[in-house]
Design a protein around this nucleic acid. Sequence first.
RNA 1: GCCGGUGUGGCGAAAUGGUAGACGCCCGGGACUUAAAAUCCCGUGAGGUAACACUCGUACCGGUUCGAGUCCGGUCACCGGCACCA
Length: 800
Amino acid sequence: MKYDFKSIESKWQKRWQDEKSFKALDDYSTPKYYALVEFPYPSGAGIHVGHPRSYTALDIVARKRRMQGYNVLYPMGWDAFGLPTENFAIKNHIHPAIVTKNNVARFKSQLQSLGLSFDWDREINTTDPGYFKWTQWIFLKLFEHGLAYKTTMPVNWCTSCKCVLANEEVVNGVCERCGSEVIRKEKSQWMLAITKYAERLIDDLDLVDYIDRVKIQQKNWIGRSTGAEVEFDTTKGDKLLIYTTRPDTLFGATYMVMSPEHPYIEKWKNDLENYDEAVAYREASAHKSDFERTEMQKDKTGVMLKGVRAINPVNGREIPIFVSDYVLMSYGTGAIMAVPGHDTRDWEFAKKFGCPIIEVVKGGDVEKEAFVDCDTGVMVNSGFLDGMSVEQAKEAIIKWLSDNGKGHSKVNYKLRDWVFSRQRYWGEPIPLVYCEKCGWVPIPEDQLPLKLPEVDSYEPTDNGDSPLAKCEDWINTTCPHCGGPARRETDTMPQWAGSSWYFLRYMDPHNDKALASPEALKYWGMVDWYNGGMEHTTLHLLYSRFWHKFLYDIGVVPNPEPYAKRTSHGMILGSNNEKMSKSRGNVVNPDEIVETYGADTMRLYEMFIGDFEKAAPWKTDSIKGCRRFIERVCAMADNVAPGDEYSKKNEGAMHRTIKKVSEDIENLKFNTAIAALMSLLNIFSENGVNKAEFMTFLVLLNPFAPHITEELAESFGVKDTLVRYPWPKYDESKTVEESVNIAVQVNGKLKGVVVLPLDCDEEQAKKAALDDEKVKSAIEGKNIAKIIVVKNKIINIVAK
RNA sequence: GCCGGUGUGGCGAAAUGGUAGACGCCCGGGACUUAAAAUCCCGUGAGGUAACACUCGUACCGGUUCGAGUCCGGUCACCGGCACCA
């Protein structure tokens, strides 16, 4: 058969569409399977070859599950709010909704050309009011439960653009757009209290099957540490509270450090002899750009406060208090006890400012450097802790602190609350109004969705407020609570909002009474398999787990975790082994590949390219191999002998290949699954092939190359599509061969191969090995010390 | 600096502690063809040989083991993430 991929692919894509082959059924009595890939941001550039790697992989899983009898939900949608669309709209004076619509149309046709088995009836779009109604609804629930709050906090501020920048827009401490200095500026922002879920977000990782690197990265990001809070008295009476993970080193604390933003600087205004100096230091560090802060990391700066000193609770010693920006206000209590003997940063600071350095754990040389990795050391110069191990000392000092009312053990997290405001147009409006009398008031549920107003310009205002701030008609409203005048919030939500719950909407995408019906939420339950990029591990994945836990707490969803299994694909790199980007000129357009080689070849190549979890460089040359494979399959189809069961000759290979392909798909080893199918085809060309064998081969290949396998199956008389054709089964006992090649080693070096019956006994194996000519000459003149026989594998003769 | 990952032919890569390089690309030879392309067959880690034999070989150094690409300790290089988190 000639391989006319264009007509074959459009024929089957049309048939799948007409028959709604991939529709997830609302029949809740069949076992379900929910496969999910991250929905894309529909950028103007269209998809690149990286997108299909993930989509094809789970398409293979979804197709296999359908053949295994599951009711499969494999949906797709659009995460369409966001900056690039807004910037494009500003530049070209087109409404972002129109930009979005065009981009979505392009993306959709590109994805459809790949034959991905999405259920397009469940397509969603985060910018659709029917969708973001529920994003706003969830926000209101968070607000209702005290998890959304407004606070002033430092943001990135471009001094030239007079605009708030996202972290991603700050490159090397300067504005990505204009190259000007970026400083930190206080601005009022909506926050979500994700930190209240920090503990559960770590602990519940035990409930789910995520690949290790995802779990580790999430744990590190949340950053749990166990230590103690200790109260230091001061000479002015106020108590200074600090956090430390090393309470055991309390005797080595020779000074204190407060963050420049610490409120005590104001509190002690009248006590400080050098208040002005402290304030000047605070101002200077506020104006430090991110760039300076990281560059200056090594060079510690600070001011010693004059007029107030702290008292070490454990020995009553008076020690000085410094202000330094190496201590962060946002972590712990914003103040530390400095133990220069056993902390690198404290050591550097102490050396510069001439503070004493005391060794409290034996083993290092604290004059040369801080002795930090001292867990196995013994306490010294530490009063009643002397002689204890670090671990014992920690326990003892925490007991002493609580007995004396000076402190207690404490767990801290690096995770910060989520800055949820954006001063931008193209996002979900935050559905709150501000009333002078009532404060922040949610708009009533029946008034959702709160839609975006039409505006003339999407540009941010001069003072960094949202473009919505210019929309007086929209802003001015009445308070739902008291009926008085009120003003709408003009900030919008970040792009992460819509993607934090989208997988729930797929379960019941057209519901206008709830984000999804309780029945649908119960039936589809957890996403069975979610694949996506590592770059989303600490943002999207964590945010959506947080929202889901909240929805669980308020009884909306039945499971505490959203995703049962999470895997991650490696990036597709350019042929020069660098990240694909326009500026590097190494971008491959998938449309051209589909046009030249066909979707099946494209899919096969993306899966064959290498280890799914690792980055892989794109080589257009290598695609030919996958195309040739398909053509050889077509050629083979013309030479299929009749036969309703596997021939004796091919039986073993058939069962082995079914097993290999079935298992490899589950283990993300798509590359070796394809290699196994190629090998089977090679066996067919050697041994010949009958219809039963070839049909099994087609079914195994179908998830990878769905179009051509449908076409060939039809030519063999299959009436229905292969979508629900039963997945082949294998017989374990038939996967093994009757005779096996056993390698014979002498002293660990390969000397020969003997062919023996399967499971043959040790004596027979030894005899066969010793009879081998090469083995004989290798052991000539030596004494055989012993012979190791590993059944069906190897024989090793140890000879001296 | 810390955390995670990776290092195997000319290239993409395979290999539950058990015959290193499956499968594919490139390349070379042959068949078919007037010829070329396509296709099919054969070869293809390095050294060595007329051909075998043989020797070496999974970043580097050491260890465990009958046996190490795989496990352990150390070193180097590259990639990703975090980065003054007390």
